[in-house]
């Protein structure tokens, strides 16, 4: 129980400093879970991260896997709530403020100005994720590169569901590495 409270307190404090998203504080999560409390070892932490990447939903749900490990289903919910609650309240406060000043010229400029930051971060996390995935292909990293490039082209040039490419990638990986 005290473990779960410590995990929640740690995640709640990371929640409000995670500018750029949950991945901004993944190193801090590692320190909290592996170094400070020893709830998981390095390999367990990496596996939890891979599982959350592979499962559907926002990547921040990795904290649910940490919570599950510490306290089962209750831990899954509590950890997710601790990581998301404080940030959600701040985002809602901002959204209400934004509605009140709707249409203000300075707001339109500020929002447009964040677009290049948003796009740069999307591209960077895509490339970092793709690079991290290469290690899991073992002796065939070029296959990983090809899957990433083919999916990027498919998504950029068609309106078809990316699930086709995710499924094809899964089957290819299962055959080549299985």
């Amino acid at each position: 129980m005290s473990d779960l409270l410590a995990l929640m307190a740690g995640l709640a404090s990371l929640s409000v400093i995670a500018v750029g998203g949950g991945s901004a504080v993944i190193a801090d999560m590692h320190r909290l879970i592996v170094d400070e409390h020893g709830w998981m070892d390095d390999a367990q932490f990496a596996r939890a991260y891979a599982l959350a990447q592979a499962a559907p939903g926002p990547n921040v749900l990795v904290v649910g896997v940490f919570g599950w490990h510490v306290a089962g289903p209750v831990g899954l919910l509590s950890a997710t709530l601790a990581m998301c609650g404080p940030a959600a309240i701040m985002a809602l406060g901002f959204a209400m403020f934004r509605a009140r000043v709707a249409g203000a010229a300075w707001l339109r400029v500020a929002e447009r100005g964040l677009v290049p930051v948003a796009l740069g971060l999307v591209m960077a996390s895509a490339l970092l994720l793709g690079q991290a995935a290469l290690a899991t292909w073992g002796a065939m990293p070029l296959v990983g590169v090809a899957v990433t490039a083919a999916t990027a082209g498919f998504v950029a040039m068609t309106k078809r569901s990316p699930l086709w490419m995710l499924g094809a990638g899964a089957i290819l990986g299962a055959i080549l590495l299985g």
Binding site: L129, T136, G144, T148, L166, A170, L177
Partner: peptide
């Protein structure tokens, strides 16, 4: 190994999906 292989495939494709989305949005 097959689960690991499938996860590797999904991870590589997911990276490509984000990349393609970024290109489209840009």
């Amino acid at each position: 190994p097959m689960v690991r292989g499938a996860l590797a495939g999904v991870a590589s494709a997911a990276a490509g999906m984000m990349l393609g989305t970024g290109i489209k949005m840009a």
